[in-house]
Design a binder for these strands. Structure first.
Length: 433
RNA sequence: UGGGGUGUAGCUCAAUGGCAGAGCAUCCGACUGUUAAUCGGACGGUUGGUGGUUCGAGUCCACCCGCCCCAGCCA
């Protein structure tokens, strides 16, 4: 690495000194014999000021050759100036073009339509807003690992290529040698349960794939999920952990990524609600609440997106909706002893109409009951042999949940559509770039 | 998949059924403190496609295609 150059983020330490910066040109303005180039290097933005009378003939000529997105080597004096984007600017002495950039660069500093931006995602990612989002994403990923490491959870990686097992929604399939069809994992949970029996408390952090024909601002066909699984946790312990986890993630970003949130124009006061205790609302009460607000819903129905929005709107902070009807939920959730029509589960609804960011439950640990559920749902029992064995060889109380990374980032950043919070979104009808 | 919307210059958008336009970008010129600079000029079109109605269709109708929003499924 060339250590003789300075990163833009470090300019504040070099005020008054002469430094060299490598960067890309984002914006050019000229005013006769005075030129301005706003450049970025991934760590920040800097304004370069070129005065014809103060540079060589060659340097001034090079300035005239600059185009948007060409890469440059700039040498000059650093000074703080309130007029400069980023707060610091360089009085350029020497200037060289490293890589030219043709005049047809598609992204302009103005409004563009979403389809155009996604087609040009590689370039769109260079914009200040996208850089800010990716930095928050990075902070959250690191925060996930820090949270669980501090609590002695073991990170485990579960397979992406699987035989059909897991959720009910659509699967992506591919040929797998002589073994027939393999499917891209929709969840690591079932493997997580096996690992919890070996290691106690574990979590997975990986991509998941769902071939659902969903076209909403909350769905991707490929997204990242964090799935902890804890031996000897019941559903109440599970929710306590989720609450600590979500609160930690939000506070971590508020603490360390204020600059990025400012770029995103996020009203961070809306996130302060996580410091309060999260609401725990029984499913039956949630239905009554939705009904009182005019929703057409009866006991037994799953809550729709508008119902969820109504419920969260009532409390203005994260809400657990607990103990859903058995029929609305997956076979592996534990029957609720207090009301066998329901299961010991919870969805965590994020504020501001964001909807579900976590789905979790205590797992059914009774061999006969889970076998009956599998059969009742018409699932291929033989495919679940090793999973059922977890209830046969030393069954144990255990619980876990799945947190959708992109939904969480979108909520914290205040981004409307989750396609913007992953570098290269995979959507129904979009596989490129 | 269902409901709603939309498709016009490289981009973002105008145009009572009657000559297809603007801003930005690009090019040329002016300008020593710009902030998506400003000012003057130039360049830029098979109006998504195929049919139809009409003297005349970007505009109305039918079908097809693309995209957007909402819903379902979920994280």
């Amino acid at each position: 690495m060339n250590t003789s150059t300075t990163r833009i983020a470090d300019l504040s330490h070099h005020v008054g000194a002469t430094v060299t910066v490598r960067a890309w040109v984002t914006h050019l303005r000229s005013k006769g014999k005075l030129g301005f180039a706003v450049v970025r290097d991934g760590t920040g933005v800097m304004q370069a000021v070129v005065v014809k009378a103060e540079v060589s003939e060659a340097a001034w000529e090079q300035f005239g050759q600059l185009t948007q997105e060409c890469s440059v080597l700039l040498t000059g004096d650093v000074r703080a100036d309130a007029r400069a984007p980023g707060g610091f600017e360089m009085g350029v002495k020497e200037l060289g073009i490293i890589g030219t950039s043709p005049l047809d660069y598609p992204i302009q500093p103005k409004e563009h339509g979403i389809d155009f931006l996604l087609d040009n995602r590689t370039f769109w990612l260079r914009s200040q807003r996208q850089v800010a989002i990716m930095r928050v994403r990075h902070e959250l990923e690191q925060a996930v690992h820090d949270f669980f490491y501090a609590r002695d959870f073991i990170r485990c990686d579960t397979p992406i290529l699987t035989a059909a097992i897991g959720e009910r929604a659509g699967l992506f399939s591919t040929e797998y040698f002589d073994e027939g069809t393999a499917y891209l994992a929709q969840t690591g949970q079932l493997y997580g349960e096996a690992l919890a029996a070996a290691l106690g408390r574990i979590y997975t952090f990986g991509p998941t794939f769902r071939a659902e024909k969903s076209k909403t601002r909350r769905h991707l066909t490929e997204f990242w999920m964090i799935e902890p699984e804890m031996a000897w946790y019941d559903q109440d312990d599970n929710m306590d952990l989720q609450e600590d986890f979500v609160r930690y993630l939000v506070e971590r970003v508020l603490e360390r990524r204020q600059e990025e949130l400012k770029v995103l124009e996020r009203d961070t006061s809306k996130l302060d609600c996580v410091s309060q205790r999260f609401v725990r609302l029984d499913y039956g009460d949630a239905v009554k609440l939705a009904q009182s607000k005019g929703a057409d819903i009866t006991w037994g129905d799953d809550l729709g997106a508008p119902d969820e929005a109504m419920i969260v709107d009532e409390y203005q902070r994260p809400v657990f909706v607990v103990n859903y009807p058995k029929e609305a939920k997956a076979f592996y959730m534990k029957e609720n002893p207090a009301d066998p029509r329901t299961v010991r589960c919870a969805d965590l609804l994020a504020p501001e109409g964001r909807g579900e960011i976590i789905g979790g439950s205590q797992r059914e640990d009774d061999y006969d009951k889970i076998l009956a559920r599998l059969t009742h749902e018409g699932l291929p029992v033989e495919a679940y042999g090793w999973y059922l064995d977890l209830r046969k060889y030393g069954t144990f109380t255990h619980s876990g949940f799945g947190l959708g990374l992109e939904r969480t980032i979108a909520w914290i950043c205040g981004i409307e559509h989750i396609r913007e919070v992953i570098p290269f979104p995979r959507l129904m009808g979009r596989i490129k770039p």
